[in-house]
């Protein structure tokens, strides 16, 4: 039920992001969603794409530092308090969220949030137990 995400190390300089999007475009890969964590000196660009293997290969071939991490995609009711409901459960069960960002497309009537947990397996178990829908990679890429 886990989703693979690509992380790219970027220096904080003009043209850094453009280089990544160009490499991905040239390889004919579609970015499904992304998020950028930044500090004064460097940033980490996190991507969910339709072809993880190919994307990490072309980025690496272009001399970028790439890592693959597993994240969890969860359906969240698209109404006030929807996200809060999930976080409340996670807090109660003592599950730590490293970071999260939103998926661009909706899944039916629901929004999709991408979570990175310390322990994905434990998080998935808790989410399922509490009747949240965790999306598989295949499902997510085809939204």
């Amino acid at each position: 039920m886990k989703v693979e995400q690509i992380s790219v190390f970027l220096e904080n300089k003009p043209g850094g992001l453009e280089e990544v999007t160009r490499i991905i475009k040239d390889a004919d890969i579609n970015i499904r969603t992304l998020s950028l964590a930044d500090t004064t000196d460097f940033g980490i660009l996190r991507l969910i794409v339709n072809d993880v293997d190919k994307a990490s290969r072309v980025l690496r071939d272009n001399g970028l530092r790439v890592s693959r991490t597993t994240v969890v995609a969860v359906e969240v009711p698209d109404r006030p308090g929807g996200l809060h409901g999930i976080l409340e459960v996670l807090a109660r069960e003592n599950i730590n969220v490293e970071y999260l960002y939103a998926f661009v497309e909706k899944s039916g009537e629901n929004a999709v949030i991408i979570f990175r947990f310390d322990d994905s397996d434990a998080a998935i178990e808790v989410l399922k137990k509490n009747n949240f829908t965790v999306l598989s990679g295949d499902k997510l890429y085809s939204l």
Partner: peptide, 20 residues
């Protein structure tokens, strides 16, 4: 330079900041 082995286990900002 951020090395392959370092970044493979560190897609989080805090890990790199700790290294810094």
């Amino acid at each position: 330079e951020v090395t392959e082995s370092l970044f493979a286990n560190a897609d989080e900002v805090k890990v790199l900041q700790r290294l810094d």
